[in-house]
Amino acid sequence: MPSFHESRTVRRASADMFELVADFERYPEFAPFCVAAKIRRRWTEPSGVEIVIADMEVGYGSIRARFATRDRLDREKAAISIVSIDGPFRFFESQWSFRDLAQGGSRIAFSTRYQFSNPAFDIVLAPVFSRVVAGLTRAFEKRAAQLDAVERVPMDRPAPP
């Protein structure tokens, strides 16, 4: 079963990074190969954990894969858990964790394991999906840097080209 794990140190606080990852509907703006993302349903459990049912579409050229996930956003534990509930996977789970660092910034960690439900999907989708997974933490790090640059621009002056 393919798996992937990566952690990175970023300049933003862990709570900020948590919110970037939790903002699923913005993924098409910056996440590699993410074509579409939509929240189908959202609610908060009595424990305060937010649950999101999301539809995602990833693609590369003419190759597309759509799937739905059940996402558990636990702000108190600074963790996001994602499992597939529909789509081309027999098994799919991802974990994000966020930890502030004493010197500032935070450490984000991402891991995933997945298996496609059909051997044909392994041939067609696996190369695309492995690229998606491998680029995720870098995409969020880059997105955070872009937001840092935008937030530093004084409101009375236009942003540089």
Results as ranks from 00 to 15, higher is better:
residue 149 A to H: 06
residue 17 M to K: 07
residue 20 L to N: 02
residue 91 F to S: 10
residue 56 M to C: 06
residue 40 R to F: 03
residue 28 P to I: 06
residue 40 R to M: 11
residue 160 P to G: 10
residue 13 A to L: 08
residue 110 F to S: 05
residue 100 D to M: 10
residue 23 D to P: 03
residue 104 G to P: 03
residue 2 P to H: 11
residue 66 R to A: 13
residue 21 V to M: 10
residue 155 M to L: 15
residue 33 F to I: 06
residue 149 A to S: 09
residue 43 W to Q: 11
residue 133 V to R: 10
residue 15 A to K: 13
residue 98 F to C: 08
residue 92 F to T: 00
residue 48 G to R: 05
residue 13 A to N: 07
residue 106 S to H: 05
residue 55 D to R: 13
residue 159 A to D: 03
residue 21 V to N: 09
residue 46 P to D: 02
residue 106 S to Y: 01
residue 60 Y to W: 14
residue 40 R to K: 15
residue 48 G to M: 05
residue 117 S to A: 15
residue 115 Q to T: 09
residue 90 R to K: 14
residue 137 T to E: 02
residue 119 P to H: 13
residue 42 R to I: 10
residue 104 G to I: 07
residue 76 E to P: 00
residue 148 D to G: 04
residue 58 V to A: 09
residue 80 I to Y: 04
residue 50 E to H: 02
residue 17 M to I: 03
residue 36 A to D: 07
residue 157 R to V: 13
residue 142 K to A: 14
residue 3 S to C: 10
residue 41 R to L: 09
residue 66 R to S: 14
residue 147 L to V: 04
residue 119 P to I: 12
residue 18 F to E: 01
residue 127 P to Q: 07
residue 135 G to C: 07
residue 158 P to D: 11
residue 31 A to T: 07
residue 147 L to W: 00
residue 53 I to E: 15
residue 154 P to N: 08
residue 60 Y to M: 15
residue 39 I to N: 12
residue 135 G to Y: 07
residue 48 G to Q: 04
residue 17 M to N: 02
residue 149 A to F: 01
residue 78 A to N: 09
residue 116 F to Q: 11
residue 88 P to N: 11
residue 39 I to E: 14
residue 95 Q to W: 02
residue 10 V to K: 06
residue 111 S to F: 04
residue 106 S to P: 04
residue 91 F to Y: 12
residue 91 F to P: 00
residue 45 E to K: 14
residue 42 R to C: 10
residue 79 A to I: 08
residue 62 S to C: 04
residue 84 S to N: 13
residue 131 R to D: 04
residue 54 A to N: 14
residue 26 R to V: 01
residue 55 D to V: 05
residue 73 L to I: 03
residue 6 E to H: 11
residue 1 M to G: 13
residue 94 S to M: 06
residue 149 A to V: 01
residue 122 D to G: 15
residue 161 P to Q: 14
residue 52 V to T: 12
residue 143 R to L: 06
residue 101 L to M: 10
residue 137 T to S: 15
residue 20 L to V: 02
residue 24 F to W: 09
residue 158 P to L: 14
residue 36 A to T: 01
residue 64 R to D: 00
residue 45 E to Q: 14
residue 118 N to M: 10
residue 135 G to H: 06
residue 19 E to P: 00
residue 129 F to E: 01
residue 64 R to L: 08
